[in-house]
Simulated scan of single mutants.
Amino acid sequence: MDKAIILTGITTTGTPHLGNYVGAIRPAIAASKNQNAKPFYFLADYHSLIKCQEPERVKRSSLEIAATWLALGLDTDNAVFYRQSDVPEILELTWMLTCVTAKGLMNRAHAYKAAVADNEQGGEQDPDKGITMGLFSYPILMAADILMFNANKVPVGRDQVQHIEMARDIAGRFNHIYGEYFALPEAVLDENGATLSGLDGRKMSKSYNNTIPLFEPENKLKKLINKIKTNSLEPGEPKETEGCTLFSIYQSFATADEVAQIRQRYAEGIGWGEMKRILFEHINGQIAPARERYDALMEKPDHIEEQLQEGAKKARAISSPFIRELRKAVGINRITS
């Protein structure tokens, strides 16, 4: 039986934080060890240019993300781990797909519609003001990422499901014109996936500046946890776990028995200072070994680059012959061939 091809991209615009870890990185690392699947994980550095025009930030983020995944135990023997920009066939495929994609389909993309709505609400005469072609057409680049390796399953958040549906539409159109070259990908939603709250109680996100970086040194991790917003209930007063940022983060790192014990402590009126100490010790105890590996990797960027180049070789062993096949399909090949 053929192995299922699973593909995940990580945009290189920030430092991995606890929310990234429990929501995406941890399950992906586990999936990388699944011998019944062929996982593809890539640094989506071309995607990062859509929203970030800070070269050093993109470069630094690429290093931090790669080091994070390797430090956490990504199985690079089973998984293909590469940088998007090291596989030029992806951009060539993007143009081929662009030429069969209806503009009307792109008009319906959520990100584009939201940007237009913001302009209209702001009273702009031009609804497209400030909207780049990168933002408008990036679902096509995402489709190329997926279709280049004929991924069967693409784990995504609910807000990304539309892009997988667009990739299916684009693949179907190409297949209709040129023949059956692409499998139709399926979105994989983890309904039980954790979404952590940040320092201010909102969803942990770099856009809110409320994140806790995954591999902060111990002293900084403790300081950040101590900054987590809580209510004014005193020690001894019973507290609700529902809606509590401290509890939700702890729950994502604890066993069922540990969660039950802390839930009882809440009912008994645990103090916020005590809960923050418990949370710090629990998280720090789990990530300390990986943090040590991460720090070592950050001192050896050449080793990280070697890993990415090895992944690119594996990826291009697939993409290079496939793009040659696609060129022939669309009529771009040598006249004498």
Score class of each variant (00 low, 15 high):
residue 19 G to S: 05
residue 22 V to S: 12
residue 25 I to E: 13
residue 30 A to V: 10
residue 36 N to R: 10
residue 36 N to S: 14
residue 44 A to Q: 08
residue 45 D to K: 06
residue 49 L to N: 04
residue 63 L to D: 05
residue 82 Y to M: 12
residue 89 E to L: 03
residue 90 I to F: 00
residue 91 L to R: 10
residue 102 A to P: 08
residue 103 K to P: 01
residue 105 L to K: 11
residue 107 N to F: 04
residue 108 R to A: 12
residue 110 H to C: 04
residue 118 D to A: 15
residue 118 D to V: 04
residue 119 N to H: 00
residue 127 P to I: 04
residue 129 K to Y: 00
residue 137 S to D: 07
residue 141 L to K: 07
residue 142 M to G: 14
residue 144 A to G: 14
residue 144 A to W: 07
residue 146 I to M: 11
residue 149 F to N: 14
residue 150 N to M: 08
residue 155 P to W: 09
residue 157 G to L: 08
residue 164 I to G: 10
residue 168 R to A: 09
residue 169 D to Q: 15
residue 170 I to A: 04
residue 174 F to C: 07
residue 180 E to T: 14
residue 187 A to N: 09
residue 187 A to D: 06
residue 197 S to M: 02
residue 201 G to W: 00
residue 202 R to M: 03
residue 203 K to E: 05
residue 207 S to W: 00
residue 210 N to H: 06
residue 210 N to D: 06
residue 212 I to E: 01
residue 214 L to H: 03
residue 214 L to Q: 03
residue 216 E to P: 01
residue 218 E to N: 12
residue 219 N to L: 05
residue 234 E to T: 01
residue 234 E to K: 13
residue 237 E to F: 03
residue 242 E to M: 06
residue 243 G to V: 08
residue 245 T to P: 01
residue 249 I to W: 04
residue 258 E to S: 13
residue 259 V to R: 15
residue 262 I to L: 14
residue 267 A to K: 14
residue 276 K to Q: 11
residue 279 L to T: 07
residue 280 F to N: 10
residue 308 L to F: 09
residue 314 K to V: 05
residue 315 A to V: 10
residue 319 S to Y: 02
residue 319 S to V: 03
residue 324 R to G: 09
